Amino acid sequence: MSTVATRLVQRMRHPLPGFGLSLGLGMAWLGLIVLLPLAALVVRSAGLGSEGWMRVLEDPRVRASLVLSFSASAVAAVIASLAGALVAWVIVRYRFPGRRLMDALVDLPFALPTAVAGIALTAIYSANGWVGRFVEPHGWKIAYAPAGIVIALVFIGLPFAVRTLQPVLETLGRDQEEAAASLGASRFTTFRRVVLPELAPALLTGFSLAFARALGEYGSVIFIAGNLPFKTEIAPLLITIRLEEYDYDGAVAIAALLLAASFVCLIAINTLIPALFARKRDV
């Protein structure tokens, strides 16, 4: 093959010019902005040693904050996934006045500063708020309680669930549902045997994204939580407190644990979810 033909083949394989330069610049920016700070955190946490880690993990205040953060994030991710599935279903399957507005409001937690969201939620659910004044006399305390933390985390996690499910529902169509109905399947059977298997990978992806986002949330939670040690103090807030106390080892250890949990969620999204898609196609 001549040199001209070889160059022509190479150009046909890479129709977009500048692949090497673009890849190099992209990886450089990714390394400087994302990988380098995370690597510094990992190296610093690895230098704590077993004694340093045990000192941090044996602190009852640290354990209480970690339990609250993980449990509240898990509950909020489940609620956000279920509510997000319902919202996505309504937006995709029905046409009604205000549909575009509803679709736009889903992204509001992305655009709204988290501190503003926290202040607004506190104003609504506090003892003298629009909702709190009616529920607290009955013993249902929302603000300055774990329930308020869950509500704030659902608020910031809902868009992840909706935007993950929405494109799947748009591509799903109604042919399979109509075929199942023509064969005598009930609505519940159609949903369980036809719709749910198609949505399961997207549901798991939305749950993982909402959980990872909620685990590190700070601004929208600190106002409604009340920040009571051993009761409503979340792990991200405790990191800030440890830094203010010049306990850098304690802050690094807590941050490393949250980073590891978020990394596990990303691994689940990028490995388990594609495996489920592949298994679904094989079936």
Rank of each mutant, 00 (worst) to 15 (best):
R7I: 15
V264E: 09
A76G: 01
G47I: 11
A104K: 05
L199H: 05
P17V: 13
A120T: 09
R55P: 09
V92N: 01
V195Q: 01
L66D: 01
E245M: 13
I273R: 03
L172F: 14
F211V: 10
L243K: 09
I124E: 01
G219P: 12
E170M: 08
L35W: 12
L108C: 10
L21E: 13
L257H: 03
L101M: 11
R133A: 05
P15D: 09
V116Y: 06
A64Y: 04
G52L: 10
A127W: 11
L257I: 15
D282G: 07
V34F: 15
P146Y: 03
K141I: 08
G139D: 02
I151L: 15
P274A: 05
T6N: 08
A200Y: 06
L237C: 10
I254M: 12
G219L: 11
D175R: 15
A225I: 01
G47P: 04
V34W: 14
T190E: 01
L276F: 10
G129C: 09
G20D: 11
D247A: 06
A200V: 07
R99I: 00
G118F: 01
Q10V: 15
G18E: 02
A117C: 14
L68V: 06
R242P: 00
T114H: 11
M12I: 07
F223A: 11
